[in-house]
């Protein structure tokens, strides 16, 4: 702390700043490159993050020149359907903020209502504080934040957690950044019931659903990461699968695809086990074939319970 003060008096604030050089040396360029390479689709999200990074970079330069003193409000809300990459982006955001020097440690603490709200009187405050202490110096990611607020139960302890959160978000802006995530419509309702949050959150980022094409690319990259691949027929089957799965309930974008691939690997293993006659080569062990995908229940109308519920509704 003292060394910084001495430096400032010796050299004085810089008179010019090379933004391009700052961009490269701060490591922001690496984070954004990683974002582009690792995340498929999500063009509006990437655009918003690039804008935010530019803003923070300029803001840092302004602070070095002594044009502004205040820490900008960095709390964010990520809205979007499940499986659209909110947690992944939050992780990258933590890295970005760390490299720009807005958070000291750059770790991500991911919590839900259960981690913050207690079950009886006097249980909530210590629990919330425990989580906040762990998140200090990093990013606190609250998934499905709207569950904190339950308007139908006025004695709900969620309100207590909300009050502590608001206080810390205001007083410890240098120490931690809060990211709240959840479905767009429920988050809107949550913010309108808790105006304190809306005014303390500067960046709202909306995550769009993936298109079928993007989901197929995601599937390919997921499989490639585990040294599996799809043959031509299996790829067509997977494209059909994605189209059908989207119509059915509990569709969770990339997460649904990951689960589908896990089950396909299961079927592939049991197919190899029962069908294989001779020795298998590496290709046979890592190729997912059409029947592995087509055997899914999605092609027969989804889960039995869902079919029953729908036929009941029709009656």
């Amino acid at each position: 702390m003292t060394t910084e003060m001495i430096d400032a008096t010796e050299t004085g604030p810089p008179t010019t700043i090379d933004l391009a050089a700052e961009y490269e040396t701060s490591g922001v360029a690496d984070v954004l490159r990683e974002l582009d390479e690792h995340l498929i689709g999500l063009a509006p999200v990437k655009q918003r993050i690039r804008e935010t990074a530019a803003l923070l970079l300029v803001d840092r330069a302004r602070r070095e020149m002594g044009l502004t003193q205040e820490t900008p409000t960095l709390h964010m809300s990520f809205t979007g359907n499940p499986g659209t990459g909110k947690t992944t982006v939050a992780l990258m955001m933590a890295g970005l903020l760390h490299r720009l020097g807005y958070v000291r440690k750059g770790h991500l603490v991911s919590v839900t209502r259960d981690d913050l709200v207690g079950q009886y009187i006097g249980h909530t405050a210590p629990k919330t504080k425990e989580v906040l202490k762990k998140a200090m110096g990093g990013v606190l990611f609250i998934d499905e934040a709207y569950y904190l607020y339950k308007p139908d139960n006025e004695r709900d302890y969620g309100q207590e957690a909300i009050e502590i959160l608001l206080q810390v978000m205001e007083n410890n802006r240098d120490d931690l950044v809060v990211i709240m995530a959840g479905y767009a419509d429920k988050m809107d309702k949550f913010f309108s019931a808790n105006p304190g949050f809306r005014s303390r959150i500067a960046h709202h980022i909306d995550f769009p659903d993936y298109t079928d094409q993007e989901l197929l690319r995601i599937a390919r990259s997921m499989l490639a990461a585990q040294n599996y691949f799809l043959d031509g027929a299996a790829e067509r089957a997977l494209a059909d699968y994605i189209g059908l799965r989207r119509q059915q309930p509990h569709f969770a974008n990339a997460r649904s695809i990951r689960n589908a691939l896990d089950r396909a690997r299961l079927r592939q293993a049991s197919r190899l086990f029962s069908d294989a006659k001779g020795p298998l080569d590496a290709d046979a062990l890592s190729m997912i074939c059409e029947p592995d995908i087509r055997a899914s229940r999605v092609f027969r109308g989804g889960l039995d319970t869902d079919i029953a519920a729908r036929s009941q509704a029709a009656e």
Binding site: K105, H107, K129, L132, K133, K134, M136, G138, N172, D175
Partner: peptide
């Protein structure tokens, strides 16, 4: 399992 001294300072 803290990562930053601020938690203790609080």
């Amino acid at each position: 399992d803290l990562r930053d001294a601020k938690g203790v300072m609080m």
